[in-house]
Amino acid sequence: MAEIKTKPTPVSVAAFIDAVENPVRRDDAKAVCAMLERITGEPPKMWGASIVGFGSYHYKYDSGREGDMCRLGFSPRKAELVLYLLTGEPDEAEKLARLGKHRTGQSCLYIKKLAEVDLAVLEAIARDALSHMNRKYPQN
């Protein structure tokens, strides 16, 4: 079985964010980092080479594969900001409809600019995601 590459690293989150080339993406990353730190009460940590994560949980699949991952996270990618916080909960679609300009993937929310979304709705989505994670993977 291949080694999991997305795990906590000692890399500085501030240095990682400061190295983001696009100034809008860099400022957006700083804002999302502060928001998720406030919501989770956890300090940001680098997970792998490009994910800023908050908190952690242990998962185990039916296949026997298991590991640890951040409860919530984001990555300031070249094209857009990727937030790892979608849960598929029933009321999530209503919030996404009010969010503003975005697209979604399986558990990812993609935003080109924070200025194009409603930050209060984004914060509500993040809070719901944390509540979902806390129910699904209770902290010890």
Score class of each variant (00 low, 15 high):
Met1Trp: 06
Thr6Val: 11
Lys7Asn: 10
Thr9Phe: 00
Pro10Gln: 00
Val11Glu: 02
Val11Asn: 10
Val13Gln: 01
Ala15Val: 14
Asp18Arg: 06
Asp18Glu: 09
Asp18Asn: 14
Ala19Val: 13
Asn22Asp: 11
Pro23His: 04
Arg26Asn: 02
Arg26Thr: 10
Asp28His: 08
Ala29Lys: 01
Met35Gln: 07
Leu36Cys: 09
Leu36Thr: 09
Glu37Gly: 15
Arg38His: 10
Ile39Cys: 09
Thr40Cys: 02
Thr40Phe: 07
Gly41Arg: 01
Gly41Gln: 06
Glu42His: 08
Pro43Tyr: 01
Lys45His: 13
Met46Tyr: 00
Trp47Phe: 12
Gly48His: 03
Ala49Val: 07
Ala49Arg: 11
Ser50Phe: 07
Ile51Tyr: 00
Gly53His: 03
Gly55Asn: 12
Tyr59Trp: 05
Lys60Pro: 13
Asp62Ser: 08
Ser63Lys: 09
Gly64Pro: 10
Gly64Trp: 00
Arg65Asp: 15
Gly67Phe: 00
Asp68His: 06
Arg71His: 05
Arg71Gln: 09
Leu72Thr: 15
Phe74Lys: 08
Ser75Thr: 14
Pro76Thr: 12
Arg77Tyr: 01
Arg77Thr: 05
Lys78Thr: 07
Val82Asp: 04
Leu85Arg: 05
Leu85Lys: 14
Leu86His: 09
Leu86Glu: 11
Gly88His: 09
Glu89Pro: 12
Pro90Phe: 04
Asp91Tyr: 04
Asp91Cys: 13
Glu94Ile: 04
Lys95Val: 14
Leu99Trp: 05
Gly100Lys: 00
Gly100Leu: 03
Gly100Arg: 00
Lys101Cys: 14
His102Gln: 13
Arg103Asp: 09
Thr104Ile: 05
Gly105Met: 08
Gln106Val: 07
Gln106Met: 07
Ser107Ala: 08
Ser107Phe: 12
Leu109Ala: 12
Ile111Gln: 08
Ile111Val: 13
Lys113Phe: 04
Leu114Glu: 05
Leu114Asp: 08
Leu114Met: 05
Glu116Tyr: 06
Asp118Met: 01
Val121Thr: 09
Val121Leu: 12
Ala124Lys: 10
Ile125Lys: 13
Ala126Lys: 04
Ala126His: 00
Asp128Thr: 09
Leu130Gln: 02
Leu130Ser: 12
Met133Asn: 06
Asn134His: 03
Arg135Thr: 13
Lys136Phe: 13
